[in-house]
């Protein structure tokens, strides 16, 4: 059959739109995983046992099973209990929760590593427990954890390809659409891989800048 890359430019718009959706999913799921990770970390460390134990079970299950399996659970599970979400939303929730659990592990360790004197100082100055966490401990803990959390964001970008399996329109599904019209899988998956690579390079460059800025502000 051979290769013929001349068919690719005709689908440039389709791939570009797919890449746009991939970026949108990564940003939405990334934000969810960031804030979800902070909430999970606080629950795991300071929550009432009735919250802490279910969360531990949830985290254990989510860290020990494949993301793809979790996406199936969320997509079909929500339909079963009568919540019919658009695939995009289900995909963002699945990716976001998965990486929130991983981010929460990082943030927990980082919160525990914040100097105890910081906590005591804030409490002595009259801040409440919640205020101390929100204004003193968490900002420091999150800063320290930016580089490893950046790695999670890069993993999230690549794993966003998995939501194509539950029918979310993004780069991988866009490539599949082009393939179903042209029967040229090699060319279009390679083109999609190229787009992912470019987005990945941009994300890495952005993260490096962020790390430098945080290092400078210390």
């Amino acid at each position: 059959m051979g290769l013929d890359f001349s068919v690719v430019p005709g689908f440039f718009g389709v791939l570009l739109m797919g890449a746009g959706w991939t970026v949108a999913i990564t940003v939405c799921a990334g934000l969810l995983s960031f804030f979800g990770g902070i909430v999970f970390a606080v629950v795991a460390l300071y929550g009432h046992w009735s919250l802490r134990w279910p969360f531990r079970g949830f985290a254990f299950l989510f860290m020990g099973t494949p993301l793809l399996l979790q996406l199936f659970l969320i997509y079909f599970g929500l339909i079963q209990i009568g919540i019919d979400l658009p695939a995009f939303v289900a995909g963002v929730i699945g990716l976001g929760l998965h990486f929130a659990v991983y981010n929460s592990e990082l943030i927990q360790a980082s919160i525990l590593a914040v100097d105890k004197g910081q906590y005591e100082g804030a409490r002595t100055l009259g801040l409440s427990r919640g205020q101390t966490l929100r204004k003193v401990v968490i900002p420091q803990a999150v800063r320290a954890v930016v580089p490893p959390m950046g790695n999670n964001m890069i993993a999230l970008l690549k794993d966003s390809a998995l939501v194509s399996v539950i029918g979310v329109m993004e780069l991988t599904l866009a490539a599949q659409q082009a393939i179903s019209r042209t029967y040229r899988p090699f060319e279009f998956y390679l083109a999609a891989a190229f787009c992912y690579y470019i987005v990945n390079l941009a994300l890495e460059a952005g993260l490096r800048r962020l790390e430098r800025r945080i290092a400078a502000s210390r």
């Binding site: 690549k158 390809a161 999609a192 891989a193 690579y197 990945n200």
Partner: peptide, 8 residues
């Protein structure tokens, strides 16, 4: 490492 395993 820069591209998704699924695509590979």
């Amino acid at each position: 490492r820069g591209t998704p395993a699924l695509i590979q």
